[in-house]
Design a protein around this nucleic acid. Structure first.
Lengths: 176, 176
DNA sequence: TTCGGGGCTGGTCAGATTGTGCAGCGGTAC
DNA sequence: GTACCGCTGCACAATCTGACCAGCCCCGAA
């Protein structure tokens, strides 16, 4: 990188790389370099760095719960008994396969999680399972009726081009 | 598949395949077949079908917003003016790169979306942008303080092994 | 019981890709 | 001016891929 002033998150080439890779995930490094009009080594190096920096977490297969029969999705806010702590509750949630993710949040409710179920009836079963833990006081469920914007990050990637990284808590390396 | 009774979502081999692929995304079909102890053609066929059925949506690179400098994540519920309709609001949200996803939901609030920002101060900017649309009456923000369970689907995949697909709305094929 | 279909195996083939190493070039920092 | 870093273009051997094949086994149907 140029200087220690402040490494930018990503540059235009990185963005194009991610962009292309998102559009056609199965395309290889060689093809990538051809389309991007850069040397193959460059693509490989960029990719390695992107992964090393954690910008690209991985290339795991994206599973569609609906295709597995889990056609109902819902968001649930959980109010927990402070005594128990978020950690214990999270452990409980982790044991439920239908809980896809969970976050501690500010404001009303203490935990927000995303769950799926096979049907509305099945949702009840899942919810029973979720709240069937002493540390949880109350649960509010919001059923997802329609997916207006599917999970995406591409626009963000493009917006981040050239923008310097905030020096909040990068690994001890940008020091001297 | 056995009969027309009800195709199961996935079987054990499919699950192992997804499992292994998630653990090591860069591994090829050949290596996959070696580890799974099945013929290469089998792996290729399974993979093709999994993708054809939509179980595997793709292999796109997973981007970590935090690594791009977007260290703050929040969930926002939006109450919208019915006149405008969810569609129009969704269009508005789609134009904001920091909006990672959005769903129409039941219950209080009409839309739930996930947004990211560079900092708390930046979050304000993003929120201003989000609510800066006539169709939105009110927004309630929940900042994600900690990620207790990162987005996952593997447990779900394993739970779905052998379970028959509900005949809700599959393509006209299970008829006879 | 026999037939038909589907899935899996194990093998082959040519073609393409990958990982790796190299030297040269140009821009920037010191 | 010198050193460092990133990109280019090229080469090589090794590997993997997509495609195809015949054979075997199991299950459901007739």
């Amino acid at each position: 990188m140029p200087t220690g002033a402040g490494p930018t998150a990503i540059d235009a080439l990185d963005a194009r790389l991610v962009d292309l890779l998102t559009a056609e995930p199965r395309i290889g490094v060689l093809e990538l370099s051809r389309r991007l009009r850069v040397a193959r080594g460059t693509v490989q190096a960029r990719l390695d760095k992107l992964q090393a920096r954690g910008v690209i977490k991985g290339f795991g297969p994206e599973i569609e719960p609906a295709a597995l029969g889990y056609r109902v999705m819902a968001f649930v806010t959980l109010e927990i008994r402070q005594r128990y702590g978020h950690h214990a509750v999270a452990d409980h949630l982790r044991d439920i396969p239908e809980v896809l993710e969970a976050h501690t949040i500010s404001g009303a409710g203490d935990l927000l999680c995303r769950i799926v179920a096979r049907s509305n009836a099945d949702l009840q079963r899942v919810l029973d399972h979720v709240v069937g833990y002493d540390g949880i006081v109350r649960a509010s469920t919001f059923i997802a009726l329609a997916e207006r914007i599917p999970l995406r990050t591409l626009p963000l990637v493009q917006a981040a081009v050239g923008v310097p990284l905030p020096p909040t808590e990068p690994p001890a390396d940008a020091a001297g």
